[in-house]
Amino acid sequence: MANSLNKTSLLFNNFALIFIFMSASLFAQPDFFSAKYRLEFGNYLYAEKDYLRAFHEFRNVLKTIDNDTIRFRLANSLFKISRMSEAADNFKTLFFGSALSEEARLMFYQSAYFLNDHKWFRELTEQENYQTTKYKNEVERLKSITYFYDKISLPDTNILFKPFHDSVHTRLAKFYKQKKYPQYKSPTAAAVLSSVIPGAGKIYTGEIGDAVAAFLSTAALAYLAVSNFNAEHKFRGWLFTGLTAVFYGGNIYGSAAAAQIYNARIRFNFENEVKLYFEERNYFLPRIDF
């Protein structure tokens, strides 16, 4: 009996020692920098929208694990932090032999679009190797949008509006009209008008207050010049003559400048309006994430 107890005790002791050893090994310091842990941490950062740090983690993970989803997330992290050129390059690595190929191609075009080289982007959409079948229409839409920002002449509305849903055609037509026939003012006409009647060029550019002020100040200074000459105050007469000339010339120059500013404002407002419209609708693109 005692012998049996001793045996049990010995067995238990051995078992306990092995168990302790194994537990100690199991709970030995884990390598937080191993691919497995980096991936966990990277995914956490990605979910927290800390994309720059997530990118660093994914980049390290990819040194040991090759996985399309990680590649996609890495490229998307770069896209989210506006490193578009690098994002496009990384999406390109998923073009062939990947289940995410179509999505990667769309994201590649999105990244390329945000590089703001519209001519190059349009050329890119013609590249056969890059084309997507699933998202062909989406890429065409991006291509159409680029025409609204460039100084080149717009293509026919049938081509331009084709990738868009009918419901937005009215709005697009409005943009088209604004772009094709902008309500610009001629700086030369503004200058000529102001040289005939001081302030008239300002009225032409819609600055009524400035126009009235320019007319009154030029007229008052001219009157002062005449009045002082009549009173034989020659110095003051010449002083006010000089001031009249400065105001007169300044008004002509100011009117031409006002027309240029007016035109710049028209362009700026138009581009802002277009940008805001498409941005609010995510450029009519699906939100892709894995």
Binding site: A24, Q29, P30
Partner: peptide, 14 residues
Amino acid sequence: FFLFFVVTAKGQDY
């Protein structure tokens, strides 16, 4: 007790 101690201590260690 020893096992518990080892696990906890190691956990804190890393």
